[in-house]
């Protein structure tokens, strides 16, 4: 992880395997965002999966945005939710971490973690292919637009307001 991964207030992490069809939705969205967003607003990472090493740059960000494919959603549907730290189960600790686990590591190891959002993109296929399915292709511009709107507000120092969320409510304790 480059040490300058979070010079910006927002850290965006798009993750998934680009060789498994729609699982590449997160990295593809991240690539588009990287091309569009000024570095002073957001740093962008792409990854196959979330790794413990990401806890450190996350701890330096004020806001984090995760983007991932979601097989539980209708293809092309987008779900945005706040990420809250939870106690990891044995299964969580066994093989891979979700955003909750990485944020927990950021808090436990570095004393703080950012407020975080997860964008889930409903996936149609995880076949061995590099192309995204039509519904996911159609959904990505909406994801990018929404993330950019959130980043602009965050960079302008405006409260990060979400439907149903109280203004200024923090998702985890900041040390």
């Amino acid at each position: 992880m480059p040490s300058n991964a979070t010079e910006s207030p927002v850290l965006i992490i798009g993750y998934g395997n680009a060789l498994r069809g729609d699982d590449g939705a997160g990295p593809e969205a991240a690539r588009r965002l990287k091309a569009s967003l000024p570095r002073r607003w957001a740093s962008v990472l792409t990854a196959h999966q979330l790794l413990p090493e990401m806890a450190e740059p996350l701890s330096r960000a004020q806001w984090a945005i995760f983007i991932d494919a979601d097989c539980r959603l209708q293809p092309g549907r987008i779900r945005r939710r706040r990420v809250r730290i939870v106690q990891p189960t044995v299964a969580d600790a066994a093989h891979q971490q979700g955003p909750e686990g990485i944020l927990r590591l950021a808090r436990d190891l570095y004393g703080r973690c950012p407020r975080a959002l997860l964008y889930g993109v409903g996936a149609a296929s995880f076949a061995y292919e590099q192309a995204l399915s039509p519904p996911v292709r159609a959904a990505l511009p909406r994801v990018v637009r929404d993330v950019m709107r959130v980043v602009r507000r965050a960079s302008a120092g405006l409260a990060w307001r979400l439907p149903g969320a109280r203004r200024g409510k923090r998702e985890c304790r900041h040390a």
Binding site: V90, D92, A93, G101, R104, L105, D108
Partner: peptide, 13 residues
């Protein structure tokens, strides 16, 4: 596991 490690010995983690 790693989460336990982070709590028991954060410096090591």
């Amino acid at each position: 596991n790693l989460f336990g490690l982070a709590q028991e010995n954060p410096q090591l983690a």
